[in-house]
Design a protein around this nucleic acid. Structure first.
Lengths: 252, 252
DNA sequence: ATGATTGTTCTCTATACGTGAACATCGTTT
DNA sequence: AAACGATGTTCACGTATAGAGAACAATCAT
């Protein structure tokens, strides 16, 4: 870990520990989780609080994330051209399918839903926006991963593979085969791999250079989605091709 | 600036400079804005990037905010009990008024809209959620400020007063009078102070101790809102009183 | 080609960081 | 009440390190 500012790194780690906790946290608990002295954690908190990144509950002296992070997070979205650009396409797709439609992007070795439009049906599936998940886990993510360099794929598959249902893919070789198949046919469809009874259909968005960093997917209860899957595949592909073309992509 | 970690403070300042810029920024520009050496800024960026708080565009080497901030910002909202709790009340109010309805909270010496439901009318006014603004600037904010301690009020009014329209309040003494009036009657209504042709009606939410940290407001074009203002005042007051009461407030 | 920008790397010293322990405040338990 | 255990907060100190400044590399414009 050279040329890294240790206290800055610690402050980042501190903020991120709040992601895995639903409650406020105190100095002692943070000091345990981060393996830092209480004094150091306290100084970190004082500094972060003075900048609005952390706020302290006066009643119980516990700390939680501050509103400045809300501002910054929102700014990420507003600076994110693609979500602005893709919005009308998502809306159109949501209207014609009535199912959950998501815009997924890659960030390092994770995937994130940066936008979504919920299904109108009373019985519908839901995803959590803005939360990271592994690139091998969902249709929307795999359809991005499939177009990455082999080194990236190998690096990700050489790590621990998390499973979510009894059907989740867990064999690296099997996943790799599947990725090649996706690359061949240009889309992905899967059921039960992330959530039982749920089917996702996803296609990649290409930028002007042909690189894939994002995808659009339709997700819904299998008994509604599977009977019309060919129609949905056609619609997602039509949408992502139109977007890719408007982004300057000149491929098939 | 004692017992503050300077590099952490710098990293916070660095992230916040992106709030006032709509584009990516490079080392040199940041170094100028922050008055830090290029080397120092570079190290900050490397560290923040390794934690996902910053990302670099490989094409032009410029930097922008990273997706981890999106995660953290979203977490702030999910941890914010009030917005979850107030949601159904907002929806009801939006449905019966058809105008923009906002939930506003105080953070230090600023106000932030943490939730809103847009008007259904084709001609409608819009606010930017999650962005700070001064506590004296809008109805929603003033109705919170009015119930703060005098020291807080004086501190805020002793600073620079920003104006937004030719009608914006700018005389500290006049604002203070207005705040007292708000306190008397329990709500605020104003036109043209933040945006010309726009009228806001706001009432405070009280917690179990009677403290005011949030408000609900109805905002819309004056020619639609003013004619029915008494009705809207009654509805906002009924809503905030119901919420306050459910939060444990036992006042009038 | 030249020059003026950039981003990145390097060396070096003042200092700011993190530790560890002491102190202060809480609730609980006995 | 009194003693305990847990908290959050403060402090002094030595070492690791953060930040300055200059050199280097890589662009882009002229």
């Amino acid at each position: 870990m050279d040329n890294h500012l240790s206290s800055v790194k610690n402050s980042c780690r501190l903020l991120k520990t709040f992601l895995d906790s639903d409650k406020e946290m105190g100095v002692s608990e943070l000091s345990r989780q981060l393996q830092l002295s209480k004094g150091a954690v306290h100084k970190l908190l004082m500094t972060l609080e003075s900048e609005g990144f952390i706020k302290q509950n006066p009643a119980n002296k516990q700390y939680s994330l501050g509103y400045t992070l809300l501002e910054l997070g929102n700014k990420v979205l507003r600076n994110h051209d693609l979500s602005e650009f893709a919005k009308p396409f998502l809306r159109k797709l949501a209207e014609s399918t009535n199912e959950l439609v998501c815009l997924c992007v890659q960030d390092e070795f994770d995937a994130i839903y940066v936008d979504k439009i919920d299904s109108k049906y009373p019985i519908r599936f839901n995803v959590e926006a803005y939360r990271r998940f592994p690139l091998y886990a969902t249709s929307a993510a795999r359809v991005i991963l499939a177009f990455q360099d082999d080194e990236v794929i190998d690096h990700i598959l050489s790590g621990e593979i998390r499973t979510f249902t009894p059907y989740s893919l867990k064999d690296p070789a099997g996943i790799k085969e599947r990725l090649h198949a996706i690359r061949q046919r240009g889309y992905e469809m899967s059921s039960n791999l992330r959530n039982e009874g749920v089917t996702g259909i996803a296609a990649p968005i290409r930028d002007a250079n042909g690189a894939v960093n994002a995808s659009i997917s339709i997700i819904g209860p299998s008994d509604r989605v599977v009977p019309v899957y060919q129609n949905f595949i056609d619609q997602v592909l039509a949408t992502t091709r139109e977007i890719s073309s408007q982004l300057g992509y000149r491929g098939k």
